[in-house]
Amino acid sequence: MSLCSVRRLSVGYGDFKVLFDIDLDIDEGQAMAMIGANGAGKTTLLRAITGLLKAPDDSIKFAGRPIAGTPPHAIVALGVAMVPEGRCLFPSLSVEENLLVGAHAKRRGPWTLQRVYDLFPALLQRRRAPVELLSGGQQQMVAIGRALMSNPRLLLCDEVSLGLAPIVIKSIYCAFPAILAEGTTILVVEQDIGRAIAMADTVTCLQEGKVTLAGPPKQFSRADITAAYFGR
């Protein structure tokens, strides 16, 4: 059952087109990894799904309902949450306040402050601290926790491993099974092909604004993926 479906989506910035006729289905309860080189259009696709970028009518459906043209805050209320690239925490808010802002849409569900602290125990001791005093990994945990606080049906994670040490990345990826266990669907944008394949039920590759590969990772050889990633 497709939770979010994208059909013939073409968007860009002014005259500069980034995505060309994208088709994409994200199945409920699954983890999808999206790979692709810099500039392939991954972040642009997430911006279109979250409503930050105006998409043509009927190009995006969420839970069966067209959402193109819906303002971002209303899309959050429908159950789409985003962990933006570079974390984008609110510097004048403490850790706990950042998490609480995430609950602004007041959606009911399993995720509460307590559950987020259970998922990321490191945050509990730093709950009153300004987010800038946290390590990069802890900041990433706040960003994920903040998105979870809206109890999303679909969690979009943009480059969560960017700039983090491998051991820290591992501890963050450890959180995904618990999130999936709550029935939340996850889309992770990832540069590292190996890590993407390891965690995902399906993998999608973008290259220069087009989908070059989509399906369960088992289907594809290493060479298929490399070709889809870099072009022939």
């Binding site: 930050l52 971002p72 808010l93 802002v101 849409a105 903040r146 809206s150």
Partner: peptide
């Protein structure tokens, strides 16, 4: 208050604040 947090978050970064469900 929640309103106060929303004000501060929007002041910090209004685009990300919208991604938190805040109707700017």
């Amino acid at each position: 208050t929640g309103l106060g947090r929303a004000f501060r978050a929007t002041s910090d970064n209004q685009t990300v604040a919208q991604l938190m469900g805040i109707d700017n």
